[in-house]
Design a protein around this nucleic acid. Structure first.
Lengths: 231, 231
DNA sequence: GCAACAAAATCGTCATACTTTTACTTCCCG
DNA sequence: CGGGAAGTAAAAGTATGACGATTTTGTTGC
């Protein structure tokens, strides 16, 4: 949980309810109502609402109440919003958005990583590429997922761009969701694994162009598969 | 201001102070101290701190105080964090990060826009391309900036990806900052303007590949110029 | 029918008391 | 002399009552 204590718990109830549309845009909540519904004090309600306000999900107005804002205004990059949407009815749309984002960002990150990666980064990437090959062949999906997440996280971090690096958890959530919801082939595709090896090799060799191309093939393929599955 | 009232004002003081490093990572604040320093009540301090906590900029701990977290843990995609960093000592680093992000995202957005843009979008883009040409020739930097921001915003929106669309304000802030801080040539470069026209034409014609290439040239050029100026 | 004014509802702020957690300190026993 | 256990205090966490500010709504009077 990002936020501690009772406000955090309240947030964990309200956020998903709003994100899933259970509490629709335009709905009006009142502080007193929330106090009673969740058996907490004004203090707690107000702090939770303030956080939702900072995510632009609600707008408190005097004499009116706390109105839920339309989805288009939410902070769609907020990690909590992403998590809530992935967990709820919006999962498909959120996965599509994130898929496109990956297609845009990860190839660029790979290209930068080929230039900026530290020796440790390069070693780790090589090791993970091997691990991916092994666990894929063994059809050990759980370990494969773990290493896959680590692989993409390292590329993002090694890019040297702090904003790319912070997409680590989001990408991790996408990959996890894909495995959990059986949007993955039963055994990872040998071609995809091969591409991961290529990315690792290109980054080790400092070949930005190749790293970018291989990574683009990976994420574009993932997006295509995702779209195919969701339709 | 994202957040209303006194908590918003307190946030507008604390946020920039932390973002600029004036209050460094590891520093410990106490609620009572903040109450007195800013002449507000406990309620107000707590709500502002809660929002900072949701941005992962601080972590309140009992018996210790409110500790400022290291920059690497902040929510770098939060619009407020971006704004505060752009306003403070971190401006250069933030501009570089955003520059790379633009290079990754905007070409992808242009490609998607070539496929998904509505007729209105296409018309607006054409009109703006003309406007850009006119205002550039007239060296009317202020109007040029306005139209430039609108141009990129429409491309991002027309991509049909909600996450891309939400980068509108961020891109706007980058462009504004560039003009304000004289990181721009006195008169916009004819070649850059030409590229905007190409993007508009490609999107109108539904040519994703060309739109992407032209847009990449624009943002890559902007990034290069930025890096040259900052060094 | 319109305008000015009054009233009510709801959030916003403050002050205060109490609770809970946790770091620190002291003291006793081995 | 060292180490652990118990106690203490400091800070955030929660609850509550009172009042202020603002905005919507309704009502009254011209």
């Amino acid at each position: 949980m990002e936020i501690q204590g009772l406000p955090g718990q309240l947030l964990a109830e309200l956020g998903p309810a709003i994100a899933s549309g259970e509490i629709p845009a335009g709905a009006v909540l009142r502080t007193e109502e929330l106090e009673q519904r969740f058996r907490v004090s004004r203090t707690v309600v107000r702090e939770a609402v303030r956080v939702l306000e900072s995510m632009r999900m609600v707008a408190p107005r005097r004499r009116v109440g706390i109105t839920v804002r339309p989805k288009a205004e939410w902070d769609v990059f907020d990690p909590l919003v992403i998590r809530w949407r992935l967990a709820g009815a919006d999962r498909a749309a959120q996965l599509r958005s994130l898929g496109s984002l990956r297609v845009a960002v990860e190839p660029a990150a790979a290209a930068l990583a080929a230039v900026h990666a530290s020796d440790d980064d390069r070693r780790e990437l090589s090791a993970l590429a091997v691990e991916l090959t092994v666990t894929a062949r063994a059809a050990d999906l759980e370990t494969f997922l773990e290493h896959d997440i680590a692989f993409h996280a390292i590329v993002l971090r090694a890019s040297g761009n702090e904003m790319f690096a912070h997409l680590k958890d989001t990408v991790g959530a996408v990959l996890t969701g894909r495995t959990e919801h059986r949007l993955m082939p039963h055994q990872p595709r040998p071609y995809a694994v091969q591409l991961h090896r290529e990315v690792a090799e290109a980054i080790c060799a400092g070949d930005a162009e190749l790293a970018e191309r291989a990574m683009r093939t990976i994420v574009a393929g993932a997006l295509e598969e995702l779209n195919a599955t969701l339709d």
